[in-house]
Amino acid sequence: MDLENQRRVKEFAEQYGPENVVVLLGAAEGEASGLAAETVTAGDPTYAGPLTGVSLGLTVFHVCEPEVKAEFDEAVYDEQVGMMEMVLDIDDICNEMQSIRSEYCKYLG
């Protein structure tokens, strides 16, 4: 994840409390989703950014995952994201996200 974005994520977690922050991703495929999710939960796997060795354990979802999708206005989601469901490998993305969440998320109900 971009180093500046890592810095901002870290700041928001400190400012609002990690239990109040949710990260939403729009990555184009499973592996990239997993890497970004890992960065905001376990820490930066590339050892380059401010989140290196920082395990925030934030709640993180990909925007196409059914759990968050259900909370959006259907028409807005369809207009902004809907078409991409035909393009992205949603199953692969969901599997990656699920496995990272179950291992590293600290604030899931």
Binding site: V22, L24, G26, A32, T59, C64, E71, M84
Partner: peptide, 17 residues
């Protein structure tokens, strides 16, 4: 709810969403 009342940080992707 996952999102209601939460502070959301968005990391989009040019080639995704």
């Amino acid at each position: 709810s996952i999102l209601n009342g939460k502070k959301v940080v968005i990391i989009g992707d040019r080639d995704g969403v």
